[in-house]
Amino acid sequence: MAGNGGSEGLAALRRQLEALERAGRLASAVLPFGLAAIDTALPQGGLALGALHELAGAGPDAEDGAIAAAFLAGILARLAPPRPVLWCLAAGDLYGPGLAACGLAPERLILARAQSERGVLWAMEEGLRSAALGAVIGEVEALPSAASRRLQLAAEASGGTAFALRRWRNGERAARQRAAPNAAVTRWRVAALPGALIGGAPGIGRPRWHIELWRCRGGVPASWMVEACDATGHVTLAAELADRPEAPAFRPAFAG
């Protein structure tokens, strides 16, 4: 009995804490990942809609932004399916077929090319204010905390979801700017992992990613090894790599 009363009291205390953290805002809708491992780490069991999320690549992907874009495409494929999404960028190298393979249909994607990062941030805000979009993505290098606060407020007021995809021109700038604080509700880092072999056959198997949720408001940071998203945008947990030996694809006829 004491245990029962204790757990009820604990649940009530937890709810109070959540209400305090949200500071009186209403609970927002969520987009679950479909993976219990990830969903339990996020507050309210999924990616919060009506908020700003930050996504960056770790290591060499900080400059490429390929894995981050694919991960984001998988999320967008499942977020309010028929609604269009606005992708604001300054450098144009997104490739439609690659995004379509992650589940983001070409009729949903609207690209906005801005001349500078200020233009990208402005376009993101305009997109959030409109009720016509499902989500807004902006590729920025630096996300100052004032700008992120504005985006977060705009997202909360209108219910749209904003994603800030951070890409740097070189590793040095990445190291300097990546850890700066901002108002994003969740901050992710994705990196590449060697792919899984399919039945021991040579060739590239299913790509794998290392996803790290390193800052989460109301949740606990965690990291996972997942397989890349399939055509519907869902990621799945990867089996452990520990007991699988590395196998080269082919053996060269001569040494060296």
Binding site: L26, S28, A29, G50, A80, A132, G159
Partner: peptide, 15 residues
């Protein structure tokens, strides 16, 4: 601030 209702509305209605 109508975050939840607005987000639900976005899920339901089309563009």
């Amino acid at each position: 601030a109508r975050g939840m209702l607005a987000a639900e509305g976005r899920e339901r209605d089309g563009t």
